[in-house]
Amino acid sequence: MARKAKEPKIKEEKVTKIGGKFIRRRKPNRSVGGDVAIMAMLIGVGIFMLLPFVYAISNSVKPMDELFAFPPRFFARNPTLDNFSDLFIIMSESWVPFSRYIFNTVFITACGTIGHLFLASMAAFALAKHEFPGKNFLFTAVIWALMFPATVTYIPNYLILSGLGWLDTYLALVVPAFASTMGLFLMKQFMEGLPTALCESARIDGANEFRVYWSIAMPNVKPAWLTLIIFSFQSLWNTTGGVYVFSEQFKTLPYALNQILAGGVARQGAGSAVAVFIMIVPIVMFMLTESNVVETMASSGIK
């Protein structure tokens, strides 16, 4: 509601006379036909984007006989929550209880995100608000690192983690996530917009550098750290653990989803139930922070 009030009311098609010519103010270049076509296209593509979500939700509440129905139906006739309870029964026969996968994913995501938030925001603060030799070089290195997929370095990473003795522990997934590049990049770009005078006045009042960072800079870049949390959360929440962890008790929820779906048609219902669980959490988080994320991305450009 508050947001709506901010948008100025625009008088459509107001005709103004400037220099003898009539000029239509505001959107002189939109045709009704074009607007309708665009709306139709957006709705069509929007339905395509939502299709798998609706299908997953619908499948997750289908009773067994409807999952096997031919021809397959999109929507469930007699919705049931059996699949969610079956999930715990199916998975209780496996090596570790299903709740362990949930715990692993939540734990890895929480630790990785918190560590990344602190480390990246501290580095971003120095890069954005301090002058020192090597500053450009250090930031350019991060931009270059954004430009290639992480798979490029996974073999040496595997060897480094194995050398540290971190393979097959939470550390292998959590610590490298501290230094992911996206968060630092967004944070630094956003902090550039923070008025230097704000930091200066705090320094004159006798605050040390850490206080300036913690009590002045951080509270003023809330959109940036919310965005950082969203991005970090998204990548960690969806990690399967890859080759870095191989014991079943350290495997994550997306890995469990893979395993269940590999079980074939009989597991479709349970698989969809997991998929629904996996997707709901990040989507809700994004919904709550959307305007902050968009605000942060506005300063995301590479110049």
């Binding site: 798998p52 979500f53 299908y55 969203i230 929440w237 399967t240 969809s272 998929a275 919904m287 959307e290």
Partner: peptide, 21 residues
């Protein structure tokens, strides 16, 4: 609309639902 278009990206592994479809 932003939520609708961004949801597939943020929900990551859910693309596996396509393999059922």
């Amino acid at each position: 609309m932003i939520l609708v278009f961004y949801a597939p990206t943020i929900s990551g592994q859910v693309y596996m639902v396509w393999s059922i479809m």
